[in-house]
Write a protein that binds this DNA or RNA. Structure first.
Lengths: 229, 229
DNA sequence: ACAAGTATGTTGGAAATACAACGATTACTC
DNA sequence: GAGTAATCGTTGTATTTCCAACATACTTGT
């Protein structure tokens, strides 16, 4: 899919988190109103430069975008991946004057739709209804990311591996609404998520099991409420 | 200030992050349009219950609100404080169906303005211009919180105290646009922010100083670019 | 000037974690 | 069904972090 050349599929757009809830009929009107800019990027081409002040949200149409951070000593870190349908830069686009502390790079040849934040917010006579939907989706996306970050932070701010585990498992239990639940990670992924060593974490899990706090099998867990931390 | 009884000061409101940018003349129209609900809470009264599905954003008019989390075993944790002018519940209000994983409690007798998320987004004939401002402020607030969380997370995901420190200091250096800068924390606050032990952190800072990576005096730091991590 | 309090650096021992290595089990492929 | 890879638990050691305690410098209030 080449964005600059060809027309983007409405079927694709209406499934993205940003355009979710709009019908294929509404899309042309809405797109005419928010006036997106389509751009193609070669592999490893820089889409957004650290230090820039951006006002547009990027929507990945095809390819893949990596959000990377370069520190004072020039060490690069991959912060996030944006796949087709994902948006990026939204936290900065709505904060005029806030300079990018990350860069966005096309990890593969990529087609990007750039939507100016002001176009999202400004009123136009014809498409206010669609605007409302767009803004609603935008707020929901931001809120969702916010909750995910807050949640992860609340686990990671615990000092010990055991506390991190209990914080995470307790959280998952509340989501499931049960003391028995499945987690979406294997051990290595869970260790990466909690930023701890896998073997140490595995060890701690087994200790807790031996102490009768919980039982598990693979990714299934069962918390025992009788035991206090 | 009693919210249910008396009129809220427009001078106060227009200084809040949510209503910033609106004039005192516009406020009555806007308020009439978004139809806020004013409620007073006694000390220790629960404002939002864990497990609820809320659709309204809370704005603290007076008093103080604590956001607390109760885990599987009933252990309570204070997640955040909301002071007059601060909003709370915004991440959940814009995500219908997302159940609260925290509770909000009045730490002191408090007056709260509750604004339904739908009223913020829906179009009304008269006040679209003000709505746009409100939504813009809301998005900016959400984006700001998002950046702060991402930033903190990027430091905390480092494994060692030294790496956490370097991540934080590098970030501060980039903000300042210089290798010399001031940080807004004392040692204990920095340790709390990075979730490490103060004395161990102090120790690590001095080791890095002795290795020639940086110099500091109180909250002033100077990074040496010649040295690689 | 003095006392009390606060912030910071320093140290040593206890505890926790990271790391590396390996065995057992399961899943997957040919 | 044999071979391979992936996952998970286990262990021992090296390293790091925590914790408590204390010395020193600096601040503040009287």
């Amino acid at each position: 899919m080449s964005a600059a050349g060809t027309q983007v599929s409405n079927a694709f757009l209406k499934k993205t988190s940003l355009f979710r809830g709009t019908t294929e009929e509404e899309l042309p009107t809405l797109l005419g109103c928010i006036a997106p800019v389509y751009r193609d990027f070669a592999k490893n081409e820089i889409i957004l430069h650290q230090g820039e002040d951006i006002t547009a949200v990027g929507l990945v149409l095809s390819g893949r975008v990596q959000i990377i951070e370069e520190d004072f000593w020039g060490n690069r870190n991959i912060i996030a991946d944006a796949w087709p349908g994902d948006i990026f830069g939204e936290s900065y686009a709505f904060l005029p004057g806030e300079l990018l502390r990350v860069s966005a790079i096309a990890a593969e040849p990529s087609a990007i739709m750039m939507i100016d934040a002001r176009h999202m917010l400004e009123i136009c006579s014809s498409a206010c209804r669609f605007h409302t939907r767009l803004v609603q989706n935008m707020l929901a996306e931001s809120a969702k990311k916010n909750l995910a970050l807050t949640r992860k932070l609340s686990h990671m701010s615990k000092r010990s591996t055991r506390e991190k585990l209990l914080s995470y498992l307790s959280s998952q239990s509340l989501v499931a609404g049960s003391d028995q639940f499945e987690i979406p990670f294997n051990r290595q992924q869970l260790a990466d998520y909690l930023c701890v060593d896998r073997s140490a974490m595995s060890n701690e899990l087994c200790k807790m099991r031996d102490e009768g706090m919980l039982t598990f099998d693979k990714s299934s867990f069962h918390l025992k409420s009788e035991i206090q931390i």
